[in-house]
């Protein structure tokens, strides 16, 4: 509100979304996660018919109609290997920051396999790869590829439409975005400037529409 130069009285409605939506006392209503991501993705990129939202502990994909309403969706909330927590844990094992790891993966020369899916097992695998003198760039690429293959298979459950927009914090990682393009065999994925606000923007859009 400070940044926008407005006061509470200027705000007509506040909607909440996300796993903590019910903990926010100021909200008038909540918007379910899928609807919020769909509205957010559509707001940033109206042509999009597929929205992918990869957050810290969950990954989701939704198929949209022309108005940005979700017609189908897939969600992973059972396993951290399909969410940002995977990348975070791997960066920790590799002893680099997430930002560094994303950049490093773009410098890789070799394609190496990652066998482990589970975050816990993959941590040990990464440590093993470091011991066997595999370059951090190659390991970084393998990490992003393995994560991208899981997110892609989730998207394939609802079908891939060529115009894809990605929101959620993990979309800030260029290494992951590059891996997703390889995996989905598409040239372009639309990423907004602040992808982590995607669902909040979607909740705001929903609040405006329902006014």
């Amino acid at each position: 509100m400070q940044a926008a130069g407005i006061s509470r009285d200027d705000i007509a409605r506040i909607y909440g979304t996300g796993s903590g939506e019910n903990a926010v006392s100021i909200v008038a209503a909540t918007v379910n996660d899928i609807r919020a991501m769909a509205k957010g993705g559509h707001y940033y990129y109206p042509k999009a018919r597929t929205v992918v939202d990869v957050g810290a502990e969950e990954g989701r994909a939704a198929k949209l109609d022309a108005k940005g309403n979700p017609v189908d969706f897939a969600i992973n909330e059972k396993c951290a290997a399909g969410a940002g927590a995977f990348i975070e844990a791997m960066a920790w094992a590799l002893e680099v920051s997430i930002e560094e790891m994303g950049a490093l993966s773009l410098e890789a020369n070799n394609k190496i396999p990652m066998n482990a899916q589970c975050v816990v097992f993959a941590e040990s695998e990464v440590v093993g790869l470091i011991h066997s003198k595999t370059s951090k760039a190659d390991i970084s690429k393998a990490i992003h590829d393995s994560m991208a293959s899981r997110i892609a298979s989730m998207i394939r459950r609802i079908g891939v439409n060529a115009d894809v927009v990605m929101i959620g914090g993990v979309a800030c990682n260029p290494g992951f975005v590059a891996a997703m393009k390889r995996e989905l065999k598409i040239d372009n994925i639309y990423i907004p400037d602040d992808p982590e606000y995607g669902a909040a923007v979607g909740a705001a859009v929903a609040a405006a529409e329902e006014g």
């Binding site: 502990e57 059972k78 396993c79 951290a80 927590a85 844990a89 589970c118 975050v119 816990v120």
Partner: peptide, 9 residues
């Protein structure tokens, strides 16, 4: 019971 990472948090 499905994910050690979630269980940890």
């Amino acid at each position: 019971s499905t994910c050690v990472v979630y269980a940890k948090s």
